[in-house]
Simulated scan of single mutants.
Amino acid sequence: MLEYLPPLNDHNLPYPDTIHPIVVHFVIAMVLFAVVCDAIGYFTRNPRLYEVSWWNLFFATISIFIAIIFGQVEAGLAEAYAAVEPTLNLHTIIGWSLSGVIAAMTGWRYVLRVRDPKVLPVSFLGAGLFLTGIVLFQVYLGDLLVWVYGLHTVPVVEALKEAGLQ
């Protein structure tokens, strides 16, 4: 069965480079932009920005599940040596949790939008601020995985192969 799988490259992946960071950057941008649009729309009383925010949250909800799928595949192919495991596990748990939080906020936003698309309660802005905090912490963990621990970087993959840890 394994002979049907493509060989792993110098990034320890069956495709040219990591896909998870590419997709997840769209999610990050859409979520943060949605929160910013909500805040600006609320304080300037411009309900057109609520529509922009709604569509960003909607597509972020879809995109985060795509990011998680690739993240799970790439985490499974990564050489998770002892030092990286706690950070990788926390990043995975928060990623799955974040998908639920974003989906719940999108559902909440949909209900608010159906009731009155020109009104946004302060509690939703507070939830958006909480969501921003989770996203920023998740970005920090992802940065650690790449820039400190070097997951899927050529030098780390080669070093692990040479050390016989693969």
Rank of each mutant, 00 (worst) to 15 (best):
R48Y: 11
V111Q: 13
G107Y: 10
I93W: 07
L160A: 02
I102V: 10
V36Q: 04
A75H: 13
T106Q: 05
V101A: 10
R113V: 05
L125M: 01
N89T: 12
R113G: 04
H20V: 05
T92M: 08
V111I: 09
L90F: 06
W108I: 13
A67R: 11
I102T: 06
H20W: 04
V111E: 13
P21T: 03
M1Q: 07
L49E: 12
A159T: 04
G128Y: 05
E74P: 14
I19C: 08
T18N: 14
A103I: 09
L8D: 03
T92H: 14
I19N: 08
V157K: 06
D10C: 01
I66Q: 08
V35L: 12
I68D: 06
V148Y: 15
E51C: 04
D143F: 08
L90P: 02
P14V: 05
W147Y: 14
L32A: 12
A60E: 06
L8F: 06
K161W: 03
I66R: 01
L77D: 11
F130N: 10
Y149C: 14
T61N: 15
V148L: 01
G71T: 10
Y140T: 14
G107P: 04
L151A: 03
L13Y: 07
H25W: 07
N12S: 11
L131C: 12
K118F: 06
L112T: 05
Y140F: 14
F124H: 15
Y149V: 06
I28Y: 13
P47G: 08
I93N: 00
G133D: 03
K118H: 10
P121S: 02
V135L: 08
R113Y: 13
F70H: 11
Y50A: 10
A60K: 02
I64S: 09
H11V: 02
A82H: 01
P6I: 09
T18D: 02
G126Q: 07
P7L: 09
A80P: 01
L77G: 03
V122Q: 00
A83M: 07
E85D: 04
V52H: 15
S97N: 11
V146H: 04
Q72F: 08
I68F: 00
E79M: 13
L136F: 14
F26D: 01
T92A: 15
V139I: 15
T132K: 03
F58Y: 10
R48F: 07
V23G: 12
A80S: 11
V73G: 04
T61P: 05
P16E: 14
F43C: 06
P155V: 11
V156F: 02
L141T: 09
G126P: 01
I102H: 09
L141K: 15
A83G: 04
A67V: 03
P121Y: 11
H152Q: 02
L125I: 06
E162M: 02
E158H: 03
F43S: 12
M1R: 00
H152W: 06
F43A: 13
V101R: 15
V24H: 11
A83E: 13
